[in-house]
Computed example of a mutant assay.
Amino acid sequence: MPDEIDRAQEINEQLLGDAIAAQQRAMPRGESLVECEDCGEEIPEARRMAMPGCRKCIDCQTLHEHWRAL
Rank of each mutant, 00 (worst) to 15 (best):
L70I: 12
L70W: 05
E45M: 12
R48K: 06
A22L: 15
N12V: 00
R47G: 01
E4C: 00
C54A: 10
R47V: 12
Q24M: 15
E13W: 06
H64C: 04
I58E: 11
C54F: 07
A26R: 15
A26N: 10
C54D: 05
G17C: 10
T62H: 08
D59H: 10
R7D: 09
W67M: 14
D38L: 07
D38S: 12
V34I: 14
V34L: 00
Q9L: 13
D3L: 05
E37V: 04
L33T: 06
A19M: 08
R55P: 03
M1I: 07
Q23L: 15
W67Y: 15
D6T: 13
E35S: 00
R29N: 02
E65Q: 11
I11E: 14
R48F: 04
I11L: 14
E35H: 13
E13M: 10
D59V: 11
E13P: 00
Q9A: 04
I11W: 07
D38K: 06
C36W: 01
C54S: 08
A8V: 06
R55F: 09
P28A: 08
A21G: 03
P28R: 09
G30V: 05
D6H: 15
H64E: 09
K56E: 02
K56T: 03
Q61Y: 01
E37D: 11
L70A: 14
C36I: 02
T62S: 09
G53Y: 11
D6I: 12
M49L: 15
K56L: 15
H66D: 00
Q23H: 14
A46M: 01
L16P: 02
Q61F: 07
Q61A: 08
P44E: 13
G30N: 09
P44R: 07
Q23K: 12
S32W: 04
R25T: 12
E42D: 09
M49D: 14
E10V: 11
P2R: 00
A69M: 04
W67H: 14
P2G: 00
D38Y: 07
P52S: 04
G40R: 05
C60Y: 08
Q24H: 15
C57W: 05
Q61K: 11
R55N: 02
L16W: 10
L63C: 08
P52D: 03
M27S: 06
G40N: 02
M51E: 14
E13A: 00
M27V: 06
G17V: 08
I43L: 05
P28W: 02
C39K: 04
H64F: 15
R29T: 14
L63F: 01
H64G: 08
Q9N: 14
R29C: 03
M27N: 13
S32L: 04
E42P: 02
G17D: 14
G17M: 10
E35K: 07
Q24L: 15
E37A: 01
Q14H: 08
C39E: 07
E45P: 03
R47W: 03
A69L: 07
L15C: 01
A26G: 15
D3N: 14
M51C: 10
D3F: 10
M51K: 13
R68I: 10
A50K: 09
A46G: 03
P2I: 10
R47M: 07
D59Q: 06
E42Y: 01
R47C: 03
T62Q: 06
